[in-house]
Simulated assay, not measured.
Amino acid sequence: MFDHTLDLCRSLPAVITEKKWDNELRFYVGEKLFCMISLEPPHRVSFKCSQNQFHQLISRPGIVPAPHLARYHWVQLKQEDTLPATELETFLQNAYEIIVSTLPPYEQEAIHKMKAHA
């Protein structure tokens, strides 16, 4: 599942990655962070979500407010398999879309063109 999660995040249009502190991979779109995955087990996954999703998610076992980012509605899965793969995929795509929606219009337009050609 870990490789699937990495592949999904990398496959989204205009995503760039950055390795931090040798044990975390960060995913950006338009220079804004939308997801972080620890490279060592138990592969914690942190991502941006809506305010409603934030409160629903942190009420579930194994999901906590993300350290240092919770005030921006970020959650952290204590391990990658806390959520079923399809549900995690939906949340990651949603995190990506939330961040894309905050980008300047010209960047959003370029990303939408990339999606159309994919």
Rank of each mutant, 00 (worst) to 15 (best):
V45Q: 06
A116Q: 15
A118T: 14
I98H: 02
F91Y: 15
H43L: 09
V64I: 15
L77W: 00
K48P: 04
E40F: 08
F27A: 04
L25V: 15
I99Y: 03
Q108I: 13
Y72R: 15
S38L: 13
E40Q: 11
I37T: 11
C35L: 07
D7G: 02
N94D: 14
K19M: 14
I16S: 14
I63F: 03
E107Q: 15
H117V: 15
F2I: 08
S46V: 12
C9H: 05
S50N: 06
M114C: 09
V100R: 09
L77K: 00
L6T: 07
Q53I: 00
Y96M: 02
K19L: 15
R60H: 13
I111E: 01
L77D: 00
L6A: 09
L33N: 06
M1R: 05
G62F: 08
H4W: 04
T17L: 08
H55T: 07
L69K: 04
A110K: 15
S11C: 04
A95W: 06
V15K: 06
D7P: 00
L6K: 12
P104S: 10
N94Y: 10
L25Y: 08
Y28S: 09
A85Y: 09
E107P: 02
L57R: 08
A85F: 10
P67Q: 13
K20Q: 12
S46I: 09
